[in-house]
Amino acid sequence: MTIFPGRRLKTNGVRRKSHLKRKEAWAGFLFALPAVLMFAAFSGYPILRTLYLSFFDYNMLTPPKFKGLENYVSLFQDPLFWQSVRATAVYILGTYVPTIILALCLALLLNRKFRLRGLFRTLYFTPVVMSMVVVAVIWKLLFFYQGPLNMLLGYFSIQPIQWLSSTTFAPVALAVMTTWKSVGYFTVLYLAGLQGIPTEYREAGMIDGATGWQLFRFITLPLLKPITVFVVAMSLLFGVQEFTAQYVMTGGGPNGVTRVLALLVYETGFGFMKMGRATAISIILFVILVAITMLQRRWLTATDY
């Protein structure tokens, strides 16, 4: 493996310089090595093994049996798989579109100097640090038909809602809970973005007589774009990986409408003892994610300011 980036040139001085460059390249490589080795061992190997197993029938108790592409073929024909794809899309869009909008609003509000700012920030951030298991247990109780939320609604004479036992509201309930849990995280990210914007930009805009909305629309928002891109990428990753929320609150029901792909993977592998099939689902999921990320990159470069 050659790690040397530069070309060999003939003059002595340049050779000396290239020798230094080479040393530097080695140093750089060595800095990356511990992390790269650990990734290779604890992520790379398991992922390759996952890919390998996706071509097998494996119940984890008897040795894997080769099946070729059968796992993939039967998945594409399985309505339950497509239902899960849909559930995942609904969960991610339903959760993170409101989360991002709310986070941006909160960050704009919190970006002013006022008393108790730190307190508000901490409060909004608190749900982020809680474990999803705990959060889901709390919200399952909150969403109970005769529970606190419906009681609150009752004070405004609103009929109780079947949050967890209706196919319409169960996805809504999950989105509400996850939004509550993650909005603080994205708020802090946006807050960081806002603080990175030099005040001169806004001042210049104000001198030009721009209104508050115009300042936001044409100065703040474009400058926040890198944060937005980052936040969207994070949402996608968080959203796709999540299954504790569904597992605890709805168990994937009613009738499978909240059985997201991550939950399907878990259920298929450990519940149904079809690990080969479960790994095939994750490989498909991986491909989808990579595709979306690449599209997002293209979108980013296409509309760069």
Binding site: S166, G253, N255, F272
Partner: peptide
Amino acid sequence: PYWAEISAAIQRAVENSIMN
């Protein structure tokens, strides 16, 4: 041996009928 999957299918059917 497919009990777990059968049980999940029954759960969906009952939910679909009783809740939906």
